[in-house]
Write a protein that binds this DNA or RNA. Sequence first.
DNA 1: AAATTTGTTAACCAAGTGGTTAAACCATTT
DNA 2: AAATGGTTTAACCACTTGGTTAACAAATTT
Lengths: 206, 206
Amino acid sequence: MAKVIQKDKSTEEKILAAAKNVFIRQGMMGARMQDIADEAGINKALLHYYFRNKEQLFDVIFMQAAGQLFPRIRMIFESDVPLFEMIERFCEDYIEIISANTYLPLFVFNEINRDPAGFMKKINGAMGFPKPELFLQKIEKEIKKGTIKKISPLQLLLNLLSMCIFPFVAKPLLLVNLQLDEMQFRAIMDQRKKDVARFIIDSIKK
Amino acid sequence: MAKVIQKDKSTEEKILAAAKNVFIRQGMMGARMQDIADEAGINKALLHYYFRNKEQLFDVIFMQAAGQLFPRIRMIFESDVPLFEMIERFCEDYIEIISANTYLPLFVFNEINRDPAGFMKKINGAMGFPKPELFLQKIEKEIKKGTIKKISPLQLLLNLLSMCIFPFVAKPLLLVNLQLDEMQFRAIMDQRKKDVARFIIDSIKK
DNA sequence: AAATTTGTTAACCAAGTGGTTAAACCATTT
DNA sequence: AAATGGTTTAACCACTTGGTTAACAAATTT
């Protein structure tokens, strides 16, 4: 029970929390090791004691962020449920996951933009990137069955991803432009779980 | 074919072109004045001769980019045409405009994220940010008339923006993950102009 | 053509930058 | 209490950063 053989992790945790904040605010390039140390309330040398250098620290933060997102997306895309249910699940789960870390999408897209090949290598090496093949197949099957309208599966996938992910990318703009606070934004996104799914299904069902 | 050896291009133009590339690749924080000078093929001191400092140079680039986007969006949102036509126009025009500069959305969202209040001040001072009020009103009117389904106007606006803008934010991911080249991406986005409008209208019309 | 203004450069600088070092601190073990 | 070994710090270092200077070259004006 109280078998805490682990060394005291409070410093490491403080560093990770601080680094996450700074990297999100400033990006990999803009982040300063001194800022991270200050935010963690420690000496800069101690950063290098726990994480050899900036890139390694960033990778830990990034993989930690990616690790809490991609595997769950993957599971949804690989689950063998009917198309409409898969759409509903994706909206529900994706928006729920990201609502706890709204910064994630912009953070991830910036990293991909900075180094697309390196990103895929990192991710695929560690956990495998979500592949939407099954989702695309399901769409084609339903079209052939005649249960949904004829539509490009790729375009439908883009629509689903867009409507779930984009509002988080645009969050700072929405907050300042529509003068929303965090709670209102959260409420809108909560409503959106059901709205997006219904919006899509309404559009494609015959 | 490299036809124009840009000797006729003025130094200022060379700087602006170089700065744009570097700022897009590296972001405001990641960009180095030396890199911009190198890419422009000039001495670093000459950069400061034309643009006093980095921030001013960035502002020029940014306002130039914003200036070719926001006024046109504004015009669409303020044009007095029926709802469905406004949706069609938005998809058509937005995707067409951005296709010529696919980097713009991510660039803009990063800047907003870096300093939301400062962004609004800059933009509103210079050109006015597109206000979707008329669009929202039109939706409510159509709902009352009973020509479209009951739907939250804000959610519908988010859907429209998401589906038009997001694919450009996600472009590097799409290219590397779906193994597309620039031409294929362009073709998909071209197809999308009509597809998104129809997708939306199919979903909301009674 | 002389004087003046504009464009361009190499060399430089102060203030950071990521990263290292050596010494100190502190909880256990001996 | 001395020794141990992981943790933390102040001081430091080599290098990069944005920005400046002073001299020079090329137009432009007189």
